[in-house]
C-alpha cells in the first residue's frame, strides 16, 4: 500500500527540473535548511516521508511495551514517571506526524499504512517486556540507541524534522537517564533485583545493537540520505558510538554483557562486539518477531474500537457548525 501510494506520487510529478535540482543540492551543501514551501526533488520528499512516518509509528507502537508495566509499576514515583514517559512518546508521535504532514501526506494515510502492515516501525518494539527491569533496560538502552540515531538528525536538512528532533532528543536524554537510574537501583538492590536487571540486559542487548540497522555494506538507503544530509553517520558508525558509550555503563552497573567475544581494541580505542545475528533481525522485520502480531493487533483494536468516538466527535462538530451557520 505504501509503495503504491508513492508510485502514484511519482507518476504525477513533473519531469525533473535539473537547474532547480542543482540549486537544491547547493543549498544542502551550504547547510541551509529546506522548508515545506521550498522546491525539493520527489525522491527527497519520499525518503523523508518514509523516514519520518516510520519514526512516528515507532513512537506510537513503542508506547505498548512500556505501557505494559504502567499498571504494575512498583512505586507511585515510578508509576508517574513511566506514565509521563509513555505520554512523551505519544507526543513525539504527534509532532512527527505533523512534520510528515508538511510534506503533503495526511496523518490518516500514514496511520492506515501502519495498520495495514505496510509501513515499518522500529524492530525493537516487537520484543516483550517481561519484568520491571525491562522498563529500566528500555530507557537505558533503547532510548540510548535512539539518541545516538537522533542527535545527528537535529541537523537534518529538512527544517520541520530537524526542529522536531531537537525537542525529542531533550526528552529522550531524560528518559535514558531515568532508565539507567532504574537499572542502578535494581543493581544496588537485592540479589533478586540484580538478577532481574541482568536478565533484562541479556534479552535486550542484541536487539538494541540491531536497532541501528543492517551493516553499511547492506544498507539500501544510506547513499542518497547522506548526500541530502538526512543521515550524517552510517549505521555501523552509530552502532560503534553506542557500543563505546554503553559498555562502560554496563561495567559501572556490575552487569555482564551477553557477548563472549566483546573486546576492547587498544589500537583504535573502540569496543568490538561479536557477530550480530542478522537472521533474527530479518525475521523480526518480516513480521516474525516475538510480538509483531500482538503489537499490530493492539493498534488495530484501538483504532477500530475508537472509530465510533471519532465519528461522534465529527458529527457533533458538524452539528455545531450547522447551528452556528443557521444563527448567523
Amino acid at each position: 500500500m505504501y509503495t503504491q501510494a508513492l508510485d502514484t506520487a511519482e507518476a504525477q510529478s513533473k519531469p525533473a527540473d535539473t537547474a532547480a535540482a542543482a540549486r537544491f543540492q547547493a543549498r544542502i551543501d551550504a547547510e541551509q535548511r529546506i522548508e515545506p514551501q521550498d522546491f525539493m526533488p520527489e525522491a527527497y520528499r519520499r525518503t523523508l516521508i518514509r523516514q519520518i512516518s516510520q519514526h512516528a509509528h515507532s513512537e506510537i507502537v513503542g508506547m505498548l511495551p512500556e505501557g505494559n508495566w504502567i499498571t504494575r509499576a512498583p512505586s507511585l514515583r515510578r508509576k508517574a514517571a513511566l506514565l509521563a514517559k509513555v505520554q512523551d512518546e505519544g507526543g513525539h508521535g504527534l509532532y512527527l506526524y505533523a512534520a510528515a504532514e508538511t510534506l503533503g501526506v495526511a496523518r490518516e494515510t500514514l496511520v492506515d499504512q501502519l495498520l495495514a502492515g505496510a509501513a515499518k516501525y522500529s524492530s525493537i518494539f516487537n520484543y516483550p517486556t517481561l519484568t520491571w527491569a525491562d522498563i529500566g533496560a528500555i530507557g537505558w538502552l533503547v532510548d540510548g540507541a535512539a539518541i545516538m540515531n537522533q542527535i545527528p538528525l537535529c541537523r537534518c536538512s529538512y527544517g520541520p524534522y530537524a526542529r522536531a528532533m531537537i525537542r525529542i532528543c531533550k526528552e529522550e536524554s531524560f528518559h535514558q537517564r531515568q532508565g539507567f537510574e532504574i537499572m542502578l537501583t535494581l543493581c544496588r538492590g537485592t540479589a533478586a533485583q540484580k538478577a532481574m536487571a541482568q536478565d533484562a540486559l541479556d534479552r535486550w542487548w542484541w536487539p538494541v545493537l540491531m536497532m541501528f540497522g543492517p551493516p553499511d555494506a547492506q544498507s539500501r538507503h544510506s547513499q542518497h540520505s547522506a548526500r541530502w544530509k538526512i543521515k550524517r553517520f552510517s549505521n555501523d558508525e552509530l552502532r560503534q558510538k553506542f557500543l563505546d558509550a554503553t559498555v562502560p555503563q554496563a561495567q559501572f552497573l556490575g552487569l555482564t554483557l551477553p557477548d563472549p567475544a566483546l573486546a576492547f581494541d587498544p589500537e583504535t580505542g573502540h569496543w568490538r562486539a561479536g557477530p550480530i545475528d542478522w537472521a533474527e533481525f530479518e525475521a523480526v522485520l518480516a513480521g516474525n518477531g516475538p510480538c509483531n502480531r500482538e503489537r499490530l493487533e493492539a493498534r488495530r483494536r484501538a483504532h477500530d474500537e475508537g472509530g465510533w468516538v471519532r465519528e461522534a466527535a465529527r458529527a457533533h462538530a458538524e452539528k455545531r457548525r450547522a447551528a452556528k451557520a443557521r444563527a448567523a
Binding site: I60, M63, L64, G67, I70, T71, L76, K79, A80, L83, A84, V86, Q87, G90, G91, G93, L94, Y97, A298, R301, A302, E305, G306, G307, V309, R310
Partner: peptide, 26 residues
Amino acid sequence: LSEWTGHAPLLEEELALANLALDLIG
C-alpha cells in the same frame, strides 16, 4: 485511566488521558 495507555481512540486523547491520570496520581 492509566489502563488506557496505548489504547485510546485517538492520539490527542491518549495524551489527555495520561494528563488526567498523572494529575490524580500526583
